[in-house]
Design a protein around this nucleic acid. Sequence first.
DNA 1: TTGTAGGCGTTATCAT
DNA 2: ATGATAACGCCTACAA
Lengths: 346, 346
Amino acid sequence: MCNKNKQLTIRDIAKMVGVSPATVSNALSGERHVKKETKDKILKTVEKYKYKPNIIARSLSKKKTGIIGIILPDINNPFYSEVVKGIDEELQGHDYLTVVVNTYYNSEIEISQLKKLGAMFVDGYIFVGGSCEFEKIKTYFGDYLENFVLVNRKCKNRQFSSVIIDSKRAIEEAVNFLAENGHREISYIGWSSREIIIPESKYSGYIKGLDNHNLQLNEDFLFLADDIILNQYKYGYETIFNYLDNNKLDFTAILAQTDIIGIGAMRAFQDQGYNVPDSVSVIGYGNISASKFSNPSMTTINLPKRRMGKIAAKVLFNSVNKKSSRKEVIYLKTKVVNRESIKKIN
Amino acid sequence: MCNKNKQLTIRDIAKMVGVSPATVSNALSGERHVKKETKDKILKTVEKYKYKPNIIARSLSKKKTGIIGIILPDINNPFYSEVVKGIDEELQGHDYLTVVVNTYYNSEIEISQLKKLGAMFVDGYIFVGGSCEFEKIKTYFGDYLENFVLVNRKCKNRQFSSVIIDSKRAIEEAVNFLAENGHREISYIGWSSREIIIPESKYSGYIKGLDNHNLQLNEDFLFLADDIILNQYKYGYETIFNYLDNNKLDFTAILAQTDIIGIGAMRAFQDQGYNVPDSVSVIGYGNISASKFSNPSMTTINLPKRRMGKIAAKVLFNSVNKKSSRKEVIYLKTKVVNRESIKKIN
DNA sequence: TTGTAGGCGTTATCAT
DNA sequence: ATGATAACGCCTACAA
């Protein structure tokens, strides 16, 4: 902190200029009109002594901070950071400060951070991703949960506004896309987890997609880890590499639950001597920038990350400013971004 | 905000239990001893009515917030987000909350955010990256700048502690590495900019490295953009692709100023029919995760991102807690991570 | 147009 | 072991 010891207060400035604290306050905020002459004198003194209003005191008095908190599991995940960008874009020019806080997928950390950020420190929260369990949060915050918006975080009780991808539908359409390109043996690689609802629905989208085209689910090339995966690239790579060590390639396309898994799988095919897409087609999920950087560049399913952020920010803004308090659940559509990793077969 | 209207205060709880506000405060903070019996009663009431201390008021009174602000240009850049992880790891268990704020490479935004975060809102700042110009910040904060730590942000006057990579040296060593692998025609692709000091020193490291081995600087394959590059992949790709349209490949290795540029360049070589590393070797800078995902995986220069964060956090922690106020400049070493994109030639 | 004083919710100091 | 009360620094009626 700056000048913590001998912090200059509004009273000091007032005394120096020979006016009351209220006048200084008004000169700075523009809340009430101040005679130009006095205002100039005040501003000059403020400038000279580099007086900075204490934002904590202001917040305590006004009961708002102008800060929006973004809570997300991991800043390192490009999905989340794109959403943040969308939020910032939307809030641009509204004089809000957004701060992002990482929970590292740990709900204990999430709670303890929430306590610190806690009541009054931020005007609103946007939760991006993370596990569904809001119960712990409710035991802390109680039932009065206002100005919360969820992005891609499922929550059973419809108590919050949220912006989500229908991931079941998204994966289903990916399967459709593959089928339309002539593929009938479609593998799936990912994980399944009770903690996180999203993967479950992705898997069920896969099943649905197969169904749409009367395709068989073949357990032989269904690669499903039990739990959340830390090193996705390694998982994708090793799973496929090992599979091909012991089996011949008996599917023509594979759908990866995340782009990184897809990239890892792609490399494993290549290292085992299979050309992508000539021998196998690969489709990812997410359209993170790395999917473009692979060779061949990977076809994937785009999630409208920026737009999710923008919409979440808009909803929160309206809620904070009492323009609307309706809780709404907004579904966004995905789209296949076709690049080089899919082959059309007759 | 929760319960903004009818927020429960410490006085309410005190009244309910029949004690003074001070006792409630002490029961919650553990600052002074409170008889077990009363304490239990207090805690029960707190729990029952879900009373949450107002952190703003607490901060005003204690003159600290327990919040560390991390200011960085872009959350989307994996370099920065890794540094953040390092900071968080170090601060883990110290009961600090870290919040990260994006400036999007815009110094106006940086200043306005600093004002909001301003005096008293955070106990300390870590600036990661960004341009060198601290003058604007000084005109706002004045000369009394305490509890600031810089990470990879050059600053002429040695007024702050900072943790930095000697990028000149790093690039120089990359050239050495290439030379030791038998390369004598070494190209460089990147940019040069007066605004940002780092690229300058990178380029001079390149020159120095060539010098060490009595190699010629060949302007023909020196690719230097005038200004900072937005789409680095595209820049790397198009620069090399176009070059090869009009010239034959007359260098054996290329050093890219960033990993992404290197990945783009690599793909351009491949699309023009040159094998990497058989026809050209490529080395990147940064060791971001994408460098591992390319095909071939790219040899690059590792920056100790996590460690930078950890050290910065440690220095700041000591400063905030008055264990040390010495300003120190800490240089960290880089290391070549050899993967698949370099060929050893006789 | 400007000044005075009370309040925001805690913590800290000094009593008891 | 606990209470009363004055800070903390700002904002905002209400008054002048």
